[in-house]
């Protein structure tokens, strides 16, 4: 019968329309500024710089190795490396970026900077309401604008951050053990009474085991 297909289609539309009153599956609209969808953990918008501790200038993980600047596909990162070294959050002297700029109007959120960073210093943010009335200066983010605490990172990407923290802690423990080992070896070579070495070796094996 002519028109049967149309009627069938209309019945489908009616089912969807009526169904939207009862089924959440059929009415997926969200009234955006008031209502928001739950945040998806893996989501990414633009990069930010992670710092440890309280002071962003001291705790910044970035040691200005310039890898992200080099690997960034649209070349939106600009870094000026420091001439001197300053102690980082763990007290170790490191280079630091004097200038670290990201032009977010150029950035395409590809996450390659995050992948290549050997220091877990740059991560992806989830902030997305970023409109500004200054399209040049307002979208060129400097070091201060980019710096965000590790706690914030843990808040937006819990699983990823936990893995990174665990890895960093492990590396730090390894470094400390190594430093301890080196220090002990030093003391062992300086002071060489005949009875000492035995005790020292037993201690060092304990140290490396931890």
């Amino acid at each position: 019968m002519l028109g049967e297909g149309i009627l069938k289609g209309l019945a489908e539309t009616a089912r969807n329309f009526l169904g939207s009153y009862v089924s959440k599956d059929r009415l997926t609209t969200v009234q955006f500024p008031e209502e928001r969808l739950p945040h998806i953990e893996a989501a990414r918008s633009f990069p930010f710089l992670v710092y440890d501790g309280e002071d962003w200038q001291q705790g910044m993980r970035c040691v200005s190795c310039l890898i992200c600047e080099k690997e960034c596909p649209p070349k939106c990162i600009f870094i000026e490396k420091s001439k001197d070294k300053k102690p980082d959050a763990t007290g170790k002297p490191q280079f630091y970026p004097v200038v670290f700029n990201i032009d977010v109007s150029v950035c395409m959120s590809c996450q390659i900077c995050v992948e290549v960073c050997p220091f877990d210093a740059i991560k992806m943010d989830v902030e997305f309401e970023l409109s500004t009335n200054d399209r040049f200066g307002g979208l060129l983010w400097d070091k201060e604008r980019l710096a965000k605490s590790n706690a914030y990172y843990g808040k937006i990407h819990p699983t990823e951050a936990a893995a990174v923290d665990a890895q960093l802690a492990e590396e730090r423990a390894k470094l400390e053990a190594k430093a301890k080992l080196a220090a002990e070896a030093k003391t062992a070579t300086v002071a060489t009474p005949p009875a000492q070495p035995l005790r020292e070796t037993s201690e060092t094996t304990e140290g490396s085991g931890a």
């Binding site: 002519l2 028109g3 049967e4 297909g5 149309i6 069938k8 289609g9 019945a11 489908e12 539309t13 969807n16």
Partner: peptide, 14 residues
């Protein structure tokens, strides 16, 4: 299925 009921046999579409 729903999509096809809506469209496939629709006389206007055909």
């Amino acid at each position: 299925d729903e999509y096809e009921r809506l469209l496939t046999e629709n006389e206007i579409l055909m």
